[in-house]
Design a protein around this nucleic acid. Structure first.
Lengths: 131, 131
DNA sequence: CCCGCCGGTACCGTTGAAGTAACCGGCACC
DNA sequence: GGTGCCGGTTACTTCAACGGTACCGGCGGG
């Protein structure tokens, strides 16, 4: 007899010690994706990054950059110049993230219409249920 | 003369109306990834999902499933049986998400060691700075 | 009559990311 | 001597996700 139901999932289906979910881009990092994208074309200065990242505050940008630096996906270089200059650049590790990231962005672009339609449909359904 | 610096990024580098960042998996959805993974092999019942998703509470699982249903990546089917049965299954749209997701998971697995090393290194550096 | 199972809901507390506002030191320019 | 820019820092607040506990209705079984 063929099995029509899948085998039950064991409690250790996910390794409880697996730190994959702690990967920076998978966390609630609203800006990380965009920052990576901005650095794709080469190093950028702090104030240069603030231009495309419309709405970000200095604090949040600082925090995001610091945490990404800690994760080794980008590098902070301070120049002892005048006026002071700080540059942020992708590390080789950070650059390898661009591929998978592109895959997800492509998915978003391709399926966004369908996704938004699903959201609207469920909104309309819940409005009907209210009455 | 060749340009050694990249062109400046314009303020409209990102479309301000672009809702790509609102895509479910890109938000701070701690469990969405795992839920998708659990449904990869076929439909699952509510209590069946609680087994592999160690530590999730009924409330959070309900919320996650509902929001993913709204986004059209999974489907909720209620059977008027006894005892009541509810099944969750991936939609075609949800199934297309598995590919890009795998890419990111592969990246995590491949580069996790390097990432954790970078974190430790920066921790050690900050401890040195404290003294 | 009471107990437990299924698939939740209600209420409330915690946490961490994000936002707001004010300020800083050093230097250049006027 | 005042003003402004650069690259932040500090303190405070807001907000949504997450977590904990308790409880529910309908049913079947003992």
């Amino acid at each position: 007899m063929t099995r029509t139901v899948p085998a039950p999932l064991p409690p250790d289906f996910f390794d409880p010690d697996c730190p994959v979910p702690t990967v920076p881009v998978l966390g609630g990092k609203k800006w990380a994706w965009r920052i990576l994208r901005c650095l794709e074309g080469g190093p950028r200065r702090f104030s240069e990054l603030r231009v495309p990242l419309v709405g970000i505050t200095a604090k949040v940008l600082t925090e995001s950059l610091r945490s990404m630096e800690q994760d080794g996906v980008l590098e902070r270089t301070e120049f002892a110049e005048n006026p002071p200059r700080v540059e942020y650049a992708l590390t080789p590790l950070g650059r390898t993230l661009l591929g998978p990231m592109d895959a997800l962005c492509d998915w978003s672009r391709a399926n966004l219409a369908e996704l938004l339609a699903a959201r609207e449909a469920s909104e309309r359904a819940s409005e009907l249920a209210e009455r």
